[in-house]
Design a protein around this nucleic acid. Structure first.
Lengths: 253, 253
DNA sequence: CGCGTCCTTGATTTCGATCAAAATATGTGG
DNA sequence: CCACATATTTTGATCGAAATCAAGGACGCG
C-alpha cells in the first residue's frame, strides 16, 4: 500500500537524470538537498492552469498527468502525457507564463520545487542545467512525433504509435515490461490526445483487439503483437533518446 | 540586390537575442567573435538530414527553411518553418542525432557555427545559454500550437492560424508590417505543414480570398481582415513570447 | 517561347465526426 | 454489501470535411 511518505522525490529525480548522464556525488547531494513540497492530487485536477505564472516546477512522482489546451465549445487537445520522473513545466524556469494547462489524469503525487532552488542548482552545476535543457528538448521531440502522427497518420496508426511511445517511456522508469504497461486513460482522453472522437477511438480499439494486437482492460495495456504495432505505425524510438548501454563514464568532472 | 556579403550573421544573432533580453557589451562582443561559415543554398535543399550528427548549428540569415519528416509512400510532414534569426537545430548541442530533416524552402543563406564555439559561449556566458534554452522552449510552444491546430481545428482555421503565426514571427524580425508579409511556400508546402492535401488547401484559400480575408499572390500574403482571421482561428499570440516593451529592432552596428 | 512546377477545377470516395441511446463499469454512501 | 448515481464503453445510423483521382490551365524561368 503506497502512501505519500513511501515516495522519495529526490531519488526519483536523481534516477531520471542519471538515466541521461551520470552524476557526480556533489551533484547527487545537491539534488538531495532540494526542498520538495509533496502534494497528492485526485484524478482530473488542474495542477497548473493556463496563464499561471508559477514560482515552482512540478515533479511527477506517481500517477499520470497531461498538458492540455481548451478551445471553444469544450474542445480539448491533450499535448502530452507525463509519468513519474517527468517535470512537465520545467520550461517555466525561462518562460514565466503557462500557455497551456497541466492536469492530473489519475490520482497522482507531485512534488513542487521552487524555481529559485532549481536556478541555484543549475548555476552551481551547469551540467545539471544542461540535462534539464536536454529533457525539454526530448519533450520537443515528442511534440514533433505527435505532429507527424496527427498530420499524416490514420487513426489506427496514431493509436498504435502512442501505445508504443507510452510503453517505452514507462519502461524507461521501470513501470513497464514484458509488453505490459499501465494505460490509465479513458477513450475520451485518447481521443483528445490524438485529435479523434471517443467513438472512433472505441471502434479502432475494437479492431486492434479483433486482430489480437493488444488487450486493454482495467487500465492495463498488453501489447500482444509489438512488432506488428511498430510496423504499422512506422514507430522509430530514436526520438525518445533512450540511452541503452549507458556505461558510467568515470571521468567528466 | 542583397548578396551574401551584405548579410551580417553575428548582428542577426545579436538582434535576435536582444529581442529576448538585453546583452552586456562583453556578451555582444563574444557573439561577434563567433566563427560563422556562410553558405548559400538553393530552394528545396537539405541543410541537415534526418539521422545526421552535425558538429555545428545552423543560423538562418535569409530565406525560409523548414523541419520535416518523411514517411512511407512519399508522405511528408513539415514540423516548423524558420526565418532569419532562427537556429532550428540548436537542439543538436544536447541531442546529437537529428530525428528529422532541415531543408530550405526558398533560396536561403545560412551560417554554420561550430558546436564547440557555441558551447564555449554558453559556458562563458550562462545568460546566453539561458537565452538559447529559452529559444528552444519557444519552439516547443509553437509545436504545441500546431498540435492543437491539427487535432482540433478545421482546415480553414488551421490555415488562418498559420498565417497569423508567420506574420507575427516575421514582424518580430522586421520582415513584415502593415499586415503584409512574405509567404514563399507552395500550397503543397502548406498542406504538408498542416496535415492537409494541396487540393484542399487550394479550395480553402479560394474561400478566404472570396471572403476578402486575404490575398496571396507571388509569395506575398496580405491579411486584409486581421481581426477576423484572429477570431476564427482563436489565435492567441502568447505562445510566441513576443516581448513588447522592447522596441522592435534598433539597429545594432 | 517552351517546359516544368504550381495552381485550379470537377467528380467521386472515404475516414472519421456527429447524434442518439443502450449497456456496462466504477464508485459511493448508507 | 447492496443500491444508486455517475462515468465510461459500446452500438447503430447518418453526415460531412477532406482525401483521392484525374485533367486542364497558368505562370515563372531559363
Amino acid at each position: 500500500m503506497a502512501s505519500i511518505s513511501d515516495i522519495h522525490p529526490r531519488t526519483m529525480l536523481i534516477r531520471k537524470l542519471e538515466s541521461m548522464a551520470p552524476l557526480s556525488p556533489q551533484e547527487r547531494q545537491a539534488i538531495k538537498d532540494l526542498p520538495v513540497r509533496m502534494h497528492a492530487v485526485n484524478a482530473r485536477q488542474d495542477i497548473v492552469r493556463d496563464g499561471d505564472q508559477p514560482q515552482h516546477c512540478c515533479l511527477i512522482l506517481s500517477g499520470w498527468a497531461c498538458r492540455y489546451k481548451l478551445l471553444h465549445e469544450g474542445k480539448r487537445q491533450i499535448l502530452s502525457f507525463h509519468i513519474a520522473g517527468d517535470i512537465p513545466d520545467l520550461g517555466t524556469l525561462h518562460i514565466p507564463t503557462m500557455d497551456h494547462g497541466l492536469a492530473s489524469v489519475t490520482k497522482a503525487t507531485v512534488g513542487f520545487i521552487p524555481h529559485e532552488n532549481l536556478r541555484a542548482l543549475t548555476e552551481a552545476f551547469p551540467r545539471i542545467g544542461a540535462l534539464f535543457w536536454r529533457a525539454t528538448l526530448i519533450d520537443a521531440g515528442v511534440f514533433r512525433a505527435w505532429i507527424v502522427g496527427m498530420g499524416r497518420r490514420s487513426a489506427f496508426e496514431r493509436i498504435a504509435h502512442l501505445f508504443c511511445e507510452m510503453y517505452l517511456k514507462l519502461q524507461m522508469v521501470g513501470l513497464a515490461g514484458d509488453h505490459r504497461c499501465p494505460m490509465p486513460v479513458t477513450q475520451a482522453d485518447l481521443a483528445d490526445a490524438l485529435g479523434l472522437t471517443s467513438v472512433h477511438v472505441n471502434r479502432v480499439l475494437q479492431t486492434m483487439r479483433g486482430r489480437a494486437l493488444i488487450t486493454l482492460r482495467s487500465s492495463t495495456l498488453v501489447i500482444a503483437a509489438w512488432d506488428e504495432l511498430i510496423r504499422v505505425s512506422e514507430f522509430d524510438p530514436a526520438y525518445l533518446q533512450i540511452d541503452h548501454g549507458l556505461e558510467p563514464h568515470a571521468d567528466v568532472a
